[in-house]
């Protein structure tokens, strides 16, 4: 599998009134053509900031990439100008965000919003533009798409809006789609429909996808590989089956054990004690050490390096270094 995206030692800082936060603190991962990766973490773990760094959409002026590379087909996006990025976004990378209402403009019709990226990326006009928009809406499973062009976002249900956002995201069609909690605001049966749609689009266009989520179930259902983030770092990454069956990092293991499952009975869940870390005051060693049941003295003093456990299975933990 050729490498489509190669993120190397990415570092992003956010300047806040409480101090500078190392939101992304040396993140490295790679994604092959047509591959699906889950980026998992709790709020504040840096998963969204990682994606906003890749697309260069960090909040300004607070957010800043301070180091590392984001190679897309070997081309470093960190060095691109804003003008160059505008050609890359939508054409090579596109994003689907959690809340479709914030991705759609309430005062423009669905037709105008779906046609805009088509006009920009493909230079279509008039009837051809309209036809392409209708095709796209049909491709994301919107019934009677020609009639929907006149509607405004508030006239559609949440699931329909998210489909429209999906249609805009595949206009390019792009090589990589980053979906940030794409189904969190949807109901269960609508979530099932939307995940099915994303899978179809993925198969049809050989899209590479990054699912940013806190929901391990989505990763289990949709992804080939998974990277688990904690306090701005990837603490473990590898193939989905390896991670779900033989996770090495105590945080990953605890996260998997803490989720109730249908049919699991009323047994006591393995809770992770303590609170997610405060990023303005991260401890010197491993950020998970204060909550880790297996923490050693060394964990509190020194941050563990990333260790290769197998070809594509890596973890940052002193317990697995073997020394």
């Amino acid at each position: 599998m050729t490498r489509l995206l190669d993120v190397r030692d990415l570092r992003t800082q956010l300047v806040t009134k409480w101090g500078t936060v190392r939101a992304v603190d040396g993140v490295s991962f790679a994604l092959g053509e047509g591959e699906t990766m889950g980026l998992v973490g709790e709020s504040g773990s840096g998963k969204t900031m990682t994606c906003l760094s890749i697309t260069r959409l960090l909040p300004r002026p607070a957010g800043r990439i301070v180091g590392g590379q984001v190679l897309l087909d070997g081309d470093d996006l960190v060095r691109k100008t804003e003008r160059e990025m505008q050609r890359i976004r939508g054409r090579k990378i596109s994003m689907i965000l959690q809340d479709p209402m914030s991705s759609l403009n309430p005062v423009f019709s669905i037709g105008m919003q779906v046609q805009e990226p088509i006009a920009i990326h493909h230079g279509l006009r008039g009837r051809a533009l309209r036809e392409r928009a209708v095709q796209l809406l049909a491709a994301v499973g919107i019934s009677s798409p020609a009639d929907r062009l006149r509607l405004y976002p508030h006239q559609l249900s949440g699931g329909m809006r998210q489909r429209v956002v999906g249609a805009m995201a595949i206009t390019g069609p792009p090589r990589l789609v980053i979906a940030d909690e794409p189904t969190t605001s949807l109901d269960l049966t609508i979530q099932a429909q939307y995940l099915k749609l994303l899978k179809e689009l993925h198969d049809r266009h050989r899209l590479a996808m990054i699912f940013v989520t806190h929901n391990l179930g989505i990763v289990a259902k949709m992804c080939d590989t998974v990277a688990v983030m904690y306090a701005g770092r990837i603490v473990e990454q590898g193939p989905v089956r390896t991670i779900f069956s033989a996770a090495a990092h105590p945080y990953t293991r605890a996260l998997l054990a803490s989720v109730p499952r249908v049919g699991g009975g009323r047994v006591k869940l393995t809770a992770i004690e303590g609170q997610p870390p405060d990023l303005t005051a991260t401890p010197p060693g491993c950020a998970f050490a204060p909550r880790c049941p297996h923490a050693l003295a060394r964990c509190r003093a020194e941050a563990p390096p990333e260790v290769h456990l197998a070809a594509s299975h890596r973890a940052r933990c002193w317990l697995v270094t073997g020394s």
């Binding site: 269960l188 049966t189 979530q191 089956r241 779900f244 069956s245 699991g264």
Partner: peptide
């Protein structure tokens, strides 16, 4: 059936309903 699996190997039949509530 729409509840997400706890493990990638959880075999389950996908019943995806058409339409919305």
């Amino acid at each position: 059936s729409a509840a997400l699996p706890a493990h990638p190997d959880d075999a389950r039949e996908d019943i995806v309903l058409a339409g919305e509530v």
